[in-house]
Simulated scan of single mutants.
Amino acid sequence: MDTYMTDEEMIRQYLPHNTTQCFETLYNRYVNKVYHRCLQMTKDSDKAEDFTQDIFIKVFGKLEGFQQRSSFSTWLYSISYNYCADQLRLAKRFSTTQLEESHESTTYEDSMETQLREESYQVMQQVIGTLSPQERTILRLKYEDGLSIDEIAQLYDLKISAVKMRLKRSRAKVQQLCVQRFVD
């Protein structure tokens, strides 16, 4: 197989007739990038390895449906991000770990500060939960994953100005909802 072909050319030419070789080449090109993406999100090498394998199984199951509206790498990155985010969300929801009790003595001020911080965090999580999936995703890509506006624009095939406006509106919405929650 010609390893100098673009991903899209390889998919068009080899997928119908030489599926295994096509999958193998794409896997070898992207396995490390997907693994590092998963590791960045999970902070756990075992989970990152498992997620990487799951992602490639999912991608190869959907490869015939790849419509080339974006590059293969962008499509793969989007699937990787969404898969990891979904798995982490599920893990949080069904977490069975118990919090360790702190045996340190704290002053009244420290405990009040901690309580305020926890309440603020809970309000923020509730507010973010009320956003649309698109609003949550764009905020997470920018502020949790550290993607640049250019990268987000390329990922969603948007203009840079559109990404900036969506970020601005989402931040304003979060701020407004937080203020409402604290006032109520």
Rank of each mutant, 00 (worst) to 15 (best):
R171D: 05
D7Q: 06
L90P: 01
Q67F: 08
K58G: 02
C38M: 15
L141F: 14
Y108I: 01
E135L: 03
V127H: 09
E9L: 08
Y121N: 00
S161Q: 12
E118G: 00
I79A: 01
R89Y: 08
R136K: 15
L131Y: 11
A153T: 10
Q115V: 04
S71N: 08
P16A: 05
N32L: 09
S95D: 15
T19E: 15
Q68R: 15
L76N: 07
S120T: 11
T25I: 13
F56V: 01
Y77N: 12
E64Q: 13
Y14E: 07
A91V: 01
S161C: 07
R89K: 15
Q125R: 14
V31W: 13
T52D: 00
S78F: 12
I128C: 13
Y27C: 03
M124H: 10
L177F: 04
D7A: 08
A153V: 10
E119S: 01
M112F: 10
S78L: 12
R140S: 14
N32M: 10
S73L: 13
L39N: 11
S102Q: 05
K92Y: 09
S120A: 12
N28D: 12
Q87E: 14
I152C: 06
F60H: 04
N82S: 07
V34W: 04
D184K: 04
S120V: 04
E104Y: 13
L167I: 14
Q154M: 09
Y108R: 09
S111M: 00
Y108H: 06
R140P: 01
Q176D: 07
A85I: 11
E104K: 14
M124D: 01
